[in-house]
Design a protein around this nucleic acid. Sequence first.
DNA 1: GGGTTAAAGCAAAGTCTTTGCGTTAGCGCG
DNA 2: CGCGCTAACGCAAAGACTTTGCTTTAACCC
Lengths: 185, 185
Amino acid sequence: MSPIQGTRTGGRSARVQQAVHDAVRDLQRERSRSELSVPLVAQRAGVTPSTVYRRWGTLQELLADVARERMRPDDPPDDTGALDTDLKAWARQYLEEISSSPGREYVRDLVASEGEENSEQCNRYCQVKIRAILDRAAERGEPHPDADTVTDRVTAPIVFRVFFAPGDPTPEWAEELIDQVLADL
Amino acid sequence: MSPIQGTRTGGRSARVQQAVHDAVRDLQRERSRSELSVPLVAQRAGVTPSTVYRRWGTLQELLADVARERMRPDDPPDDTGALDTDLKAWARQYLEEISSSPGREYVRDLVASEGEENSEQCNRYCQVKIRAILDRAAERGEPHPDADTVTDRVTAPIVFRVFFAPGDPTPEWAEELIDQVLADL
DNA sequence: GGGTTAAAGCAAAGTCTTTGCGTTAGCGCG
DNA sequence: CGCGCTAACGCAAAGACTTTGCTTTAACCC
């Protein structure tokens, strides 16, 4: 797969992107969202603001880009030997991740960004993990729901409650969601 | 309930708020989000930008304020005579509302705003409608789920799919969600 | 190596945001 | 009813951010 004709992906461009992303992550750790600005990020990254504006357009798009990177699944989900416990382990971990203060910020940045690409990518990453778990269950011969069902009955309620309901959902509540899905098989 | 000591709620303040809200709604109809700005809104409303900045802080907060107003439930949900059809009618209407282009913008504005107040209010409005439907079912003596269950199994999947999944959910899919909840009673 | 050109730097112009201070008008009291 | 009080508005200047045209740099490809 060759890069698109006429766009440069390596060398200086790659270094600038890396430096800017690093600068954003650094600054997110030490300052609040409302204190961030393109000139501030650019200074930390050692580039000029116009470079950032030309590549990302706005601060919001840049933050969404960084957030998307952060959401990318790194490792395959833990294999605990059974569908029930695999899903519960994943659900607990996912809840913890997005209900944390930085996690909420990332999702917020994704939703706030212009296109729908970024939000959809976030869901795609989730489904990659869910499918890995379901595939293992299939190999073991366990009965299992499909990925869309898990999305509707587990991922969706978790995300919804974190963002729209007062108070923080507990890990126990997340596990109950799994019990209910599996009970309906 | 008296207004907070030292804040003015009527007279000129109320007129300014109304004018600014109206200006935002007007402009949202004729221009895209990225073309909106505080000075533009202020000009349309016939006030100075500094007034808007002092009252709302940022464009984002102002948009969230307007969006929250828009989400406020106006009428009680239709009474079709049975829980099943009441919930389905509500779900179809809700899906249509938030999957519309302006509807998505409103929710986006709410989530993007600083505090969690605005997003939580949005859910509270939903629950008001759901509870009204469930209360009617209780009066009729119909078995019915509780409001949190409906939130997790209907509202959450609808919102999640609109924002995080590619393609638009269909009204038929929303009705299936209702069938599934009621089947589990 | 050397030409080509995407992407970065620079700087000026334009727009948005903040802030201090004077003015207006709603509210409550006598 | 009129008067004082003061929250909220208007204005304008200062400051910060954003855009843009042009120049320079350095990957990429021959």
